[in-house]
Simulated assay, not measured.
Amino acid sequence: MTIKVAVDDAARPAVRGAACLWPGIAVAVWGLLFAVPSFVWATGCTSGARTTVSPDLVRLAEDRVPWFVAVLWVTGFLKVFGALIGVGLTRRRGRWAGRLLAFCGGGAAVLLAWHGALFVVHGALVEAGTRTVAPGLAGLTRWYLFLWGPWFLAGGLAFAVATVRYVRRLDVRGDVRLHGVVGALGALLLSLASMITGVG
């Protein structure tokens, strides 16, 4: 009986460590997978994009419009940066690095969840017949409802869980938590401003 207790106690830290690691790893995998289409489309290959993304965006990629190609490269690298944030959220970092990770993690969680929720709500309204879109975009709306919306929501949830666990496990003074909240609120205000102005 004593041996069993000792083994269980020894195993608990490893279990706790694994439980804290998986959200950050999930963020990293999500970010890397999401970066692939951006890089592929930036090279001019629009395979898989014609039926799942707005035709106007596909045309910009196929025509190799310089500013849009630059946007694709930048978004691809931002997604890789998000993956690195996920890796950073798996273990204790220095004080300033911890604040930055919490800030970025909180902001990414809100931005992605907001974006995904808009896709899902808009798609659901179109499917329910309470909103209309151009006939050529009807099939595309389903992709945003069933693929892109949930994908963004999954990324937002992964960032939220990873950031909350990071803060709970490592924040002793409350300053890391504060930076996470500031990042989340900043992202929320940015999202609201984008929706109100129609920019973004």
Rank of each mutant, 00 (worst) to 15 (best):
K4Y: 03
K4I: 02
V5H: 03
A10Q: 00
P13C: 15
V15N: 01
V15Q: 01
R16N: 06
A18W: 05
A18E: 05
C20G: 13
W22S: 02
P23K: 03
G24D: 13
V27Y: 02
A28Y: 02
A28C: 03
A28K: 01
V29G: 00
G31E: 08
L32V: 15
S38N: 12
F39G: 09
V40W: 11
W41R: 08
C45M: 11
C45T: 01
G48Q: 01
A49G: 06
T52Y: 02
V53F: 10
V53S: 11
V53D: 09
S54E: 13
P55E: 14
L57G: 00
V58A: 13
R59I: 00
E62M: 08
D63G: 04
D63I: 02
V65T: 14
P66Q: 10
P66V: 09
W67I: 06
W67P: 00
W67M: 05
W67N: 00
W67G: 00
W67L: 09
F68E: 03
V69I: 12
A70T: 08
L72W: 06
W73S: 04
T75C: 05
G76I: 06
L78W: 03
K79I: 06
G82E: 05
A83Q: 03
L84E: 00
I85V: 15
G86T: 15
V87L: 15
T90C: 09
R91N: 07
R91V: 06
R93M: 10
A97I: 08
L100Y: 04
L100N: 01
L100V: 12
L101N: 05
F103M: 13
C104W: 11
C104L: 15
G106L: 05
L112H: 13
G116T: 07
L118S: 04
L118F: 02
H122C: 07
G123S: 03
G123E: 06
G123D: 05
L125Q: 15
E127F: 05
V133A: 07
L140Q: 04
T141C: 06
L147E: 00
W148M: 08
G149S: 03
G149Q: 01
W151S: 12
W151N: 08
L153T: 14
L153I: 15
A154S: 07
A158V: 14
V161A: 02
R165L: 13
Y166S: 02
V167Q: 04
V167K: 04
R168H: 14
R168F: 12
L170P: 00
V172T: 15
R173S: 14
R173W: 10
G174W: 15
G174T: 13
D175Q: 10
V176M: 07
V176T: 14
V181L: 12
V181R: 10
V182F: 05
A184C: 04
L185C: 04
L185N: 09
G186N: 14
L188N: 09
L189G: 13
S191R: 12
A193R: 11
A193G: 15
I196H: 04
I196F: 04
G198H: 08
